[in-house]
Design a binder for these strands. Structure first.
Lengths: 115, 115
DNA sequence: CTCGATGCAAAAGATTTGCACCCGA
DNA sequence: TCGGGTGCAAATCTTTTGCATCGAG
């Protein structure tokens, strides 16, 4: 798996790899992705109204996603939370382990194209 | 569908309804949920590491979710965003249409039970 | 009777799994 | 030779769909 910018679905990875590894099957990709996920190398993302899962390399910098509902483009956004999660944790008597923020919208390009 | 507190999966709805409506099939439930979703009566949720979709009634108050990864309990949390999304919109030249925040953790009860 | 809702069974699509095989250490 | 990784095919699970039927108006 290369240092891809954008998260990819298993099938996208499959087609991307196909040329160089014509024999690599989709099941193998899923198998490896699962191993990677268990070892915190990739993270699985679920996107609204999209049936397949997407996978992204876990980078050093914690971030979230801004997704164009028109073209499907995904970009990273900074985590806006400072002490919010600590407060939430205390307020609800939870031990917070993870959080996901996903913002959906229409990107600049798609706004233009739509006109 | 009753005024359920917690989001339910199609199957959970199915079993919940079964006693009173023994003939109602899962496919019908999916069909109705899809209609409800199109008409903004229910919202479909994707939860990390959970394969089925969950459905919640759309309430007046905009909110997000705090989910216990141990027992699966889901509770509403307030939306912490004030002008953040406006800024994000401008900064990225997006037209923001939706956003989801999901916080995962271990609830008080599960923390206790684990000991 | 007519139309929309539902039952029913099969299809579709994503993901997983069992088993056999192959290849490198 | 051994063990892990992969191919392959089938299974599994969720969700959707086509078609026939049922029932309220």
């Amino acid at each position: 798996m290369s240092a891809e910018d954008m998260p990819l679905s298993a099938k996208e990875i499959y087609y991307k790899i196909k040329d160089n590894n014509p024999h690599l099957k989709l099941s193998t990709i899923y198998r490896n992705l699962n191993v990677f996920e268990k070892n915190n190398i990739v993270r699985k993302l679920n996107i609204n109204n999209v049936t397949e899962s997407y996978f992204e390399l876990i980078k050093e910098n914690h971030h979230h996603h801004l997704i164009c509902i028109s073209c499907g483009h995904i970009q990273d956004i900074e985590c806006p939370f400072d002490d919010y999660l600590d407060k939430l944790e205390k307020k609800n008597n939870y031990e917070v382990t993870d959080h996901r923020l996903t913002v959906y919208g229409i990107c600049h390009q798609c706004k233009k194209d739509d006109k």
